[in-house]
Nucleic acid binder design. Structure first.
Lengths: 323, 323
DNA sequence: ACTTGACATGTAACGCGTTACAACGGTTAG
DNA sequence: CTAACCGTTGTAACGCGTTACATGTCAAGT
């Protein structure tokens, strides 16, 4: 492995000049540049990334912190990685598996200068703890955050959810259930608030036992059918789901149980993923890719780009066969 | 930001001793250790990751190179990231979007010592070019590789595919179609070979126009219905799909076109993902998570673990409602 | 009493680029 | 003819830990 010193000696210049060539400094004569480039090519030289990071004080790496990678976050992940890559940044994935200790390691990497910034997909630790890492570098969250110092690219779920509630009401549904994710998250609270407001507006009854939380996956969605639709007494005639995965599980299990969709049960997903398209699930479109771009530009402090992306950010409802 | 020098001065010891404390060297007296630890805590010190990587000559980071992240690779991705994390390694995602230049950047990161090793999910560049990077660090591929020097954790698709072909023949199908991925990849060739062998064995006709390639996604799967099942003349009565995504698209579009599954058409997926479970697609189970673990241990040169994982590596067929 | 060795700690070089500042030769303005 | 300046290149310190080797101390072994 050759290093900068060797290049300098062979070329007959100082390290500084070689470094200038590497960094495209204008203060190098064309002949010198050519000479040095030739030697570098000859020795098959590339600068050591760690040395560069150490002396420059930045790594061009951004950490992404999540419990695990699932279908729901793929659009965000892909869009973020791509945007970062276009700007010369790489993305490191930290998964915690829901373990706070493990997640903390990701935060520490910011302090240790292994990454220049952090994107938080999910945060298991206390938000205040996360906030205490803000002094080590920029942090942006996809989720809504309680802490003002951590910026978030999440949109107010309130508006999106209202679209869904309004839609099923227009379809003639009156017994509307909610299937939600993390119990006390801002998302869940916003969605519930939207639900209650719309129900009140239309003078429909709010049945709290029809709002389930802690539902995330396909399998969770299947379980919901039993809990919500198979017991005795009255059943909902519409379910708004935490995401399309849940909607898919619900749809599938409902059909297996001979519940007719949408005649007996309307189902609305969230995020409008490929899966919703495939299964024909009505879903609330959430411009996730644009949020990811925003996240990146916010981290870089390039607000202008983020603002220009902002315009794309609004919910819409895509009607398919489940409503 | 405090550094090791400051800790050493404040504690009244040399840098070397402080470093020993950081690295849990046994050659430090307990009192010294306590003193130094106390100072470190007081100054809120953590060692700079880049400096550590530079002097140790390794980063504890592994690069993962793919065209983009999709559902099909999530089990691999998650399993790999988790295994790596348990062993103190982090995973950096490089996506190329199918661009060879972009992919090359990922390879370069190995040479530049930004990552200690590489896992290749898909390789757009010439395999020989990838091979030329072997001298910079360990490389393992998920895909089968033409080059012997690059190890692969892919299983021989031949065996798995045979299960699928045999299964649909047992179900009474005789006009069997293949829907495959990358045209000339080893996977595709193996699968075709398995198909031809089984068809010959059962004296069934091989119709080359029923083997499509370049099909990867849900939408591709939907398209296949038009190409394979809607024209005039004879149609296949079974389709083996490149993966579960394709199977899902195919199933969905087939139903939309009033083709009865499995009566008129049997569908078999590949990989046995969550999606196959959800949609009730018969699928060939591919122990992807175990392959990912293998990949990691191969990279580390810890063959023993890899071998112990090896036992789990065999295909099986999971029958569901599409056959 | 003397060697041998274990243990604790220090010294200094090393890994590899980057960059502030200095220096040198030559040009141009006054 | 000189001061001011530009372009080119070098010097040396810096970013921050790690580690091979050296040194000093004290106890066990003979």
């Amino acid at each position: 492995m050759s290093n900068l010193d060797q290049i300098a000696k062979l070329a007959g210049f100082s390290k500084a000049t070689v470094s200038r060539v590497l960094n495209n400094s204008p203060h190098v004569s064309p002949e010198t540049r050519d000479t040095i480039l030739a030697i570098m090519k000859q020795l098959d030289y590339v600068p050591n990334g760690n040395a560069v990071s150490l002396s420059k004080g930045r790594t061009l790496q951004i950490g992404m912190c999540a419990e695990g990678i699932n279908e729901a976050m793929l659009p965000f992940l892909n869009s973020f990685v791509e945007t970062a890559s276009q700007n010369g940044y790489q993305t490191i994935i930290y998964t915690s598996g829901g373990d706070a200790k493990q997640e903390l390691k990701a935060f520490e990497e910011l302090r240790r200068k292994r990454v220049d910034a952090l994107v938080i997909i999910t945060c298991v630790n206390d938000h205040a703890l996360l906030g205490s890492y803000c002094k080590y570098g920029p942090i942006v969250s996809w989720q809504r955050m309680e802490l003002p110092e951590i910026r978030s690219v999440a949109m107010n779920q309130y508006d999106g959810y209202k679209l869904g509630v309004e839609h099923v009401i227009e379809q003639g549904c009156t017994r509307i259930a909610n299937v939600l994710g993390r119990p006390s998250s801002m998302n869940t609270l916003s969605r519930l608030a939207a639900y209650e407001e719309m129900m009140k507006k239309h003078h429909l009854p709010i049945r709290h036992e029809w709002s389930l939380t802690g539902i995330y996956s396909i399998r969770d969605g299947e379980r919901v059918v039993r809990e919500l639709l198979l017991g005795g007494g009255e059943h909902p005639d519409a379910v708004l789901c935490a995401n399309d995965l849940v909607a898919a599980g619900l749809l599938n299990e409902a059909r297996r149980q001979r519940i007719r969709v949408p005649e007996d049960l309307a189902i609305v997903g969230f995020d409008n993923t490929e899966l919703a398209h495939t299964l024909g699930i009505t879903s609330i479109d959430n411009p996730i890719a644009a949020q990811a771009q925003n996240a990146f530009y916010l981290l870089l402090g390039k607000l202008n780009q983020a603002e220009s992306v902002q315009q794309k950010l609004q919910f819409s409802l895509v009607k398919r066969v489940t409503t």
